[in-house]
Amino acid sequence: MRVTINGEAREIVATRIDALLNELEYEGSHFAIALNFDVLPKSRWAETHLKAGDEIEIITPRQGG
């Protein structure tokens, strides 16, 4: 299924967020995720189903002023 991850179109197999992180081999532990401009709390990663066209942002802490 085709979705957008961090602004890039990607073809993915996973149908849920936690599976998607595994599929993309994310290893860190400090992420926040927005699905179609809404924050998706970590507690809902396992239960949230993805659909074609979804826009997913995977965000971590970074230096800032």
Binding site: G28, H30, I59, T60, P61, R62, Q63
Partner: peptide, 22 residues
């Protein structure tokens, strides 16, 4: 201290490394 949020690329641990410093 101020910090920001940025996209993490697949396989990346940049965020984790920075966060442990803070």
């Amino acid at each position: 201290v101020t910090v920001s949020l940025r996209r993490e690329s697949a396989g990346g641990k940049t965020g984790d490394a920075f966060w442990s410093l803070i």
